Simulated scan of single mutants.
Amino acid sequence: MTLTPTLFDSATPPATPAVSTTAGPRPGISLTVYGLPAPQGSKRHVGNGVMIESSKKVKPWRQDVKQAALDAVQGLADWTPLDGPLVASMVFTFARPKGHYRTGRNAHLLRDGAPPRPHGMPDLSKILRCTEDSLKGIVWHDDARVVGYGRLGKFYAGTDAADVLSMPGCVIRVWPLDDAAEVQA
């Protein structure tokens, strides 16, 4: 299967997914989510067997991911959630803290000790879990179908790297395992 070059063009995330229309296996999909990536962490018991998420940021992030996924598949008349072994790529973008910048007339410059990538909270694995669960039934049948990752990471906004946004969010790409080698080549 030949995928369109815009499907995984990292220069600018597409507003709508670029999906191949050639015959063959189901095409991949690409979507961009804007919002603050949130970790799916611990739950707390509030009584009568009711458990709620500890983080108040989870629900808005899940809604942002679901809406972006629905928008991405909306224009595809015959879209059904992907099934079978899948490979995903998720690049999460975070705002750089103000403490990473100098002060005064050099406030636009990074401090010498500013880390190049986020290496603290939230945990990448917990953000990934929350994002995967949000795509269930829209992009894929279940996140258990994901057998590997092409690219997975946390970056600061404005970093010069593929799929890094200029504001907080995530670029998500999913394709069938059979097509993954072709896409990553």
Rank of each mutant, 00 (worst) to 15 (best):
L7T: 11
T80W: 09
A114E: 03
T4C: 08
T16C: 07
K98T: 06
P60Y: 03
T131F: 04
A181C: 13
K59Y: 04
G169Y: 00
V164G: 04
T22V: 12
W61H: 10
A69V: 03
T159Y: 05
D179W: 04
R151I: 09
G169R: 02
I127A: 04
R173K: 01
G47Q: 14
V164L: 03
I138P: 05
A11I: 15
P168H: 02
P13V: 10
I138C: 02
Q74S: 14
A161K: 08
M51Q: 15
A95P: 02
D133K: 14
T159D: 06
G104S: 01
V91N: 02
G47F: 04
R111D: 00
P168I: 11
S42F: 14
C170H: 02
V73W: 04
T131Q: 07
Q184C: 13
K56S: 08
M1T: 10
K43L: 14
N106D: 03
A95T: 05
S166K: 12
L3E: 07
E53K: 06
T2Y: 09
R151L: 11
N106I: 00
P13S: 13
C170G: 08
T103L: 07
A157V: 09
L152M: 08
D64G: 06
H45D: 15
H100V: 03
A88W: 01
M121R: 14
G24F: 07
T16V: 13
R105C: 00
I29W: 04
V147M: 09
M1F: 11
G150L: 02
P14R: 06
L165Y: 00
M167E: 15
D83G: 11
M51Y: 15
A185D: 07
L177K: 13
M167I: 10
R96E: 01
I172G: 04
L177M: 13
G148N: 06
A68G: 06
S125D: 15
R145M: 08
G158I: 09
D71T: 13
L3R: 05
A185R: 14
H100I: 01
A181D: 15
I138R: 01
P122S: 13
S166G: 07
T12G: 11
V73R: 08
A157L: 06
L70T: 15
P176Q: 03
V19A: 08
P176T: 09
P168M: 05
L135I: 09
K126H: 10
A162C: 12
D83I: 06
N106E: 01
A68C: 12
A107D: 04
H100D: 09
A72C: 06
